[in-house]
């Protein structure tokens, strides 16, 4: 029974009957709203913010770092502050650490405990990022996982896995590919993919 005193079905994701966890979520949400701890509009607004984020934001950050050495230095020193310079706010209270790929070090991000992900700069994670297979294998057999994504790294490159277990979120700054000296910042941003910013692949030379 909702506050306005007539029963109705909650507005959900689809027409199918809700499962156990959906019912739990609906019950919790309705209680929080009825008790005045969260307003329905604040909740709606938060979902709107979440849905407004996409990998295009991360791509802009990477492209700026590729063309502006001072920005890159600030980005590596304090990822959250540098993103906010570009209008990308860390709306969820997390702090961003940016990991620079170099010819010597390749960074790979995973959350073995759940699915922590740099949502403010990349939006919602892909389904494979949340899978048990990725979460368990990325820390145990990172080179095999990378190879399955088509990324074969020579042994002289250090593979550095980042297990996102607590308060920080991680974004990989991929290496700028060869043959892109003529491209402007927007064109460079167009080359940067979500997967490269998670670290399962590199940014390929266009063409």
């Amino acid at each position: 029974m909702t506050a306005h005193d007539h029963p109705h079905a909650a507005v959900g994701e689809g027409d199918e009957l809700p499962g156990y966890f959906e019912i739990l979520e609906i019950a919790l949400r309705e209680l929080l709203i009825e008790k005045g701890l969260v307003s329905a509009d604040a909740l709606r607004r938060q979902i709107e913010i979440l849905d407004s984020r996409s990998p295009a934001l991360g791509s802009r950050v990477v492209a700026r770092a590729w063309v502006d050495a001072a920005f890159k230095a600030r980005l590596l020193a304090d990822g959250s502050a540098a993103c906010e310079e570009l209008g990308v706010t860390m709306y969820d209270g997390t702090k961003l650490i940016v990991l620079e790929n170099t010819p010597e070090v390749h960074n790979l991000v995973v959350c073995t405990l759940c699915s922590c992900y740099p949502r403010p700069v990349l939006g919602l994670p892909p389904d494979w990022y949340k899978s048990r297979a990725y979460r368990s294998r990325a820390v145990r057999w990172p080179r095999s996982v990378l190879a399955e994504f088509g990324t074969n790294l020579p042994d002289d490159v250090e593979v550095r896995v980042h297990d996102s277990t607590a308060a920080m979120r991680y974004l990989v700054l991929p290496m700028r590919p060869e043959g892109t000296d003529d491209l402007d910042e927007d064109a460079l941003a167009g080359l940067v993919t979500r997967d490269a910013m998670i670290g399962v692949t590199r940014v390929a030379t266009p063409g």
Partner: peptide
């Protein structure tokens, strides 16, 4: 571990 000895994992720990 099958890879090279310089491979690492960074973990946040309280």
């Amino acid at each position: 571990y099958a890879g090279p000895a310089h491979d690492t994992v960074d973990i946040e720990i309280y």
